[in-house]
Design a protein around this nucleic acid. Sequence first.
RNA 1: CGGGGCGUGGCGCAGCCUGGUAGCGCAUCUGCUUUGGGAGCAGAGGGCCGGAGGUUCGAAUCCUCUCGCCCCGACCA
Length: 436
Amino acid sequence: MRLSRSLIPTLKENPAEAVIASHRLMLRAGLVRQTASGIYAWLPAGWLVLQNIARIVREEQIAIGSQDMLMPTIQSADLWRQSGRYDAYGPEMLRIKDRGDRDMLYGPTNEEMVTELFRQSVKSYRELPQILFHIQWKFRDELRPRFGVMRGREFLMKDGYSFDLDYEGAVITYRKIMLSYMRTFQRLGVKAIPMVADTGPIGGDLSHEFIILAPTGESQVFFDAAYETMDFSEGKYDHNDPADLARFFGDVTNSYAATDEKHDAGVWANVAEKREGRGIEVGHIFYFGTKYSEPMGLSLAGRDGTPVVPHGGSYGIGVSRLVGAIIEAHHDEAGIIWPDSVAPFPAVILNLKAGDAGCDALCEEAYAAFRGRALLDDREDRAGVKFADADLMGHPWQIVVGPRGAAKGMVELKRRATGEKVEVSLADALAKINQA
RNA sequence: CGGGGCGUGGCGCAGCCUGGUAGCGCAUCUGCUUUGGGAGCAGAGGGCCGGAGGUUCGAAUCCUCUCGCCCCGACCA
């Protein structure tokens, strides 16, 4: 994109309503604009980030055999009456009527719908287990939206649902998804720690929330230093082997980790290497047994022909919240520092002297090499403005093209995360960016 | 939902108490100079002061109602 003709409205000053770093930076870097309390429009750069995160989340779900699908945002109230949650959910659910005066709702989650869809077509134990997920907008009419996209009313969530024949199977699925989550967060460039959680309104008795570490997080967390060095990348654990999943589950849950509400000072005293920090919840997984399959009449033919009621679980990742959470974990005084995996653009090309033939030519050459996927700062502004905006927007690489270097065919390549700068040929710069 | 606060050009704010018809910085546009870390000078455009009623000769300012947004708390991806 050419910055001179892009809807990426950067702000020099802090908007008054933003109190936490990620909210301020998202507004200042031109990623989002609020359109109503807790509801945001994703401007071009912000939408690119959101899609990058969604892509990684999606890839890691598909990698463990979960099926990608898409359910609608608007649901019929009848479905929710079947599970008993239409009344139970309360005012957090946005209720609407269609022209025929039928009760509808904007989905806050999809257990009912996926159970219904599953019930319609799956009839035999032979078809189990299955995991389904979608990445879709949700609406929860929060008492108090705040902190920008960290607690919006409308938000993008990856919600997954599993169906197993029995408890033992459900536990294997639960662990498999837990592994996929650890892989996902690692690829997103954030440190995530699973912590035992209350099961909340969804119910059930096996649940973990995933907290990522960020200095400005909302809750205090206590954890064993062992979490700092855990590695979940592909190949470390076999998600198809129940024994290996058990090993993984042990590795990731045996060390101490708790938020302040669940903190146990007695156990904490025995932890050898203690770590304390702030954390943000970005994911939550539940095993809930037959909580939905039972009331909604989901049952299939079992091995001996008698009906079996499947055991389920649901698994959420706050995709839009992750944008804010990643910024909380990766920023400095100058602005955002995007991890390569989620950056809206891999690089920005700074034309320090728009109008200079040499600079223009070299910038166009660089820009063409990215086929539109880099950001070209071709504005007729002074260098300082461009440097400041580049740092603010947090592009992993800055290709700085100035008149002196351009005359020799050289550019300055700056790494946002480290501040390191080298003078190299454009070809070398492109090679370095591509291998990163 | 309880408690607090704020709505004045795109952003940040002043003016309100003590009514007299709107101002500052940044941003924007034009010109000249400048040009590697948020330039200088000169000029220009842009706001019926969230909305509706009321008081008054006259309301951004006083009164009433209303809408929106933010912050603290209990709940949550």
